[in-house]
Every structure is written in structure tokens, then in C-alpha cells.
Amino acid sequence: MSKKSPYLTTKGIDQLFLGFFHAWKFIAQFFRELFSRPFETKEIIRQCYEVGVRSLPLITLTGFVTGIVFTKQSRPSLQSFGASSWLPSLITIAIIRALAPLVTALICAGKVGSNIGAELGSMKVTEQIDAMEVSAINPFKFLVVTRVLACTLMVPVLAMYSGFVGLMGSFLNVNQNEYTTYQSFIKEAFSSISFLDIYSSLFKAIVFGFTVGIVSCYQGYNAGNGTQGVGRAANSAVVISMFLVFIEEIVIVQVINWMR
């Protein structure tokens, strides 16, 4: 007589669906806890500082370099058509619509995501999360809700800042090569940008921020045992966040283009 399989389909497929189910449960718990008292205002502010202010140097550097490099790389193509005066508007469209939210989200996935994954993972394996639980403190609210909220709030702010710094980098390059003044650069830059571009960029950054926060917290909160578990949590927080950010970018761009 053959032994009955404990799996509905195969082990891999069962685990995949179980993983999705756990992830959805985690997201649902986030929204349930988000609107219930007590609100951890002090901890949310602290996490906003951690996510926002501590990421500023890296965001400044990457935003600035992105602006300069993208301007330098785009110039020869436009010059060959005799259209180098379009450089400011091309760069602005690229930075505002795509680069600023995307680069910021990827930087945050790497820096903030790994940090959250490792921190929560290490708290999990050293039983600090259990210690909160048995002290009648809600660890999900204190650790997860605050971090996800901080990422959701701060990534858009950082993306806008990154866009501004990127445009400044671009202006520096344009000013050196085409001797364009600041006023004419800004006028040209924003002539081709609509409110839809800014709103969609902000929307993307909010979605990316939420994704980085929730994925990193999920990986850390459910870390396996031992130092290996912490390492895996940090690693998968970054990899899965980045993967989802790219998927979301494609989907949102399609929707925005359809609305345009």
C-alpha cells in the first residue's frame, strides 16, 4: 500500500503558497495594528530619523552622481541631432519620472532593508521579541508598524530630495558645458513636467517605501535560528525588496502611461 503524501501538490509549491499566505497575513496584521491604539509616536519619529536622516549622505551622493552621469551620457546623442538645448528637460523627465524614486528605493533597500532585516532577525534569535511578548508589550506594533511606517513616509521625502540633488548635479554639468544659467535651466527643465509626473513619482516612492519596509520586517521577524538565520534575513530583505521594486516600477509605469 502506498504512503499518502502530506502535501496537496508538491512540497515546493505547497511551501510557496504557504509563504504567500503568511506574507499576506503579515501585511493584514500591519494594517490592523496601524489604526489601533496605542500609537508609538516617539518610536515612529526615531525610526523616521534612522531611515531618513541617516540615509541622507548616501542619497545625496548617489542622486548627485546620477544627475551628472546621466547628463554626460545623454549629451552626445542629443548633440548629434542638434538638440542639446533639450538636455535639461530630458534629464528632468528621466529623474523625476523614474530615476529619483527608483534609485532612492534601491539605495534604501540596500541600506535600510539590510539594517532592518538584520536588527529584527537578531532580536528574534536572541529571544528579544519573545521577551517583549511576555512583558505584555505588542512587539509587532513596536517593531514592525513603526519601521514600515517610517519607510513609507521617508522614502518619498528622500526621493524628492534625491531628484532635487540630481537636478543640481545635472545643472552643474550643463552650466559648465553649455553655459546655461540657473534660471533658464530650471525654466527649461520644468517646461516638460506635469503634475501627473510629480504625483506618480511620489506615489511610486510611497509604494517602494512600503515594500522595502514590509519585506525587510517580514524577513527579520521570521528569521530562522542562529547567526545564519540573521544573515539570511538581511540578505533576503535586500534581494526580495529590490526584485519587488522593479516589478512595481514596471506595473506602475504601465498604469501611468495608460492614464497619460
Binding site: 537578531s122 532580536m123 536572541t126 529571544e127 528579544q128 519573545d130 521577551a131 511578548e133 511576555v134 512583558s135 505584555a136 505588542n138
Partner: peptide, 19 residues
């Protein structure tokens, strides 16, 4: 359960102090 836990003290094997 939270109310009950207020009446329980738990010392973890590795103390589990918040780092």
C-alpha cells in the same frame, strides 16, 4: 493573554535584554 502576562515574569536563557 496580555493581562495574564503582566502577572508572569520570564527569565530567558540568554537573558534577552534589549541590546
Amino acid at each position: 493573554l496580555r493581562e495574564l502576562r503582566l502577572k508572569l515574569g520570564f527569565l530567558f536563557q540568554h537573558s534577552a535584554l534589549y541590546d
